[in-house]
């Protein structure tokens, strides 16, 4: 297998407090890696460091064979901005709060990356964008503005916007956490379709139902590290490491209270 992404000893501190404390992670092609763990464990920060929305301050990230940041002895180096921008275009992100461009229609939102970042001709971008919108079941809303859509619809458009980049990897940051329970399912079903198509994804989520339905590997984060990793079947079953089982029970308790 080919690793799409390799992370070694990634670290990040805010004002002397280490939020990430040596994260190691390898994601293979076609893998759906789910990061789970208690709040404040640094899951979202890991994700945001991968595309440099946050700047890590130590460690190494290799994406598609390219070094994005590296540590040589004590010297931490980040690649030039251009290279980071090119890398981001191949690993777009889907956000908890969708973050669609509110001044553009659904179709324009999806065309934006291909037209502006990749410089594709508008007609070609429009056809591709339509195909991606169709894939997430949103083609009928192409001419709508985002403020007319429900949360689940917005998130499906956001997924189409990421797909339009022909990505090597999509980062999902709590994609269902801001949705009503009734709307979670439509996003979940889109993500499940993508996982069947062999798309590589890293998904940070509290939504254990989503994780169970799509994960190929599960990485349990605690205290700024990845405390345990393994195939989903093993990590979510009775063979799971103790800390992980405790977490899962806590989460299912919470779910029971709702």
């Amino acid at each position: 297998m080919n690793p799409v992404l390799t992370v070694r000893q990634l670290g990040k501190s805010y004002g002397g407090r280490a939020v990430l404390d040596g994260v190691d992670l390898v994601v293979e092609e076609g893998e759906i890696a789910c990061l789970i763990g208690p709040s404040g464990a640094g899951k979202s920060t890991i994700l945001r460091c991968l595309n440099f929305l946050e700047t890590p301050d130590r460690g190494e990230i290799t994406f598609g064979g390219e070094r994005l940041c590296s540590e040589d002895g004590n010297l931490f180096q980040i690649s030039p901005r251009r290279q980071l921008q090119a890398a981001r275009a191949r690993m777009p992100m889907v956000f908890q709060h969708f973050n669609l461009f509110s001044h553009r229609t659904v179709l324009e939102n999806v065309m934006e990356g291909p037209c502006v970042v990749q410089g594709r001709p508008r007609e070609e971008a429009r056809m591709m964008a339509s195909a991606h919108l169709d894939r997430v079941g949103m083609l009928g809303f192409a001419q709508h503005y985002p403020d007319r859509l429900s949360g689940g619809q917005k998130q499906r458009v956001a997924i189409a916007r990421a797909l339009a980049m022909s990505p090597a990897l999509i980062l999902f940051d709590e994609p269902t956490s801001a949705l009503d329970p009734a709307l979670v399912r439509e996003v979940e079903s889109v993500m499940r379709d993508l996982s069947r198509d062999g798309l590589t994804m890293i998904v940070v989520s509290h939504d254990m139902r989503l994780v169970r339905s799509i994960a190929s590997t599960v990485h349990f984060c605690a205290e700024g590290r990845i405390a345990a990793s393994g195939p989903a079947g093993q990590m979510l079953g009775s063979q799971a490491p103790l800390s992980m089982r405790v977490f899962l029970e806590a989460v299912s308790d919470l779910a029971g209270q709702e």
Binding site: L53, R88, R90, N99
Partner: peptide
């Protein structure tokens, strides 16, 4: 909206593109 800035950056836009678009 800060989220829209982040979305633009995460698509690989440059600073100029972010402002223009």
């Amino acid at each position: 909206d800060r989220g829209q800035r982040e979305a633009a950056i995460s698509l690989g836009m440059s600073g100029v593109q972010l402002y223009r678009r």
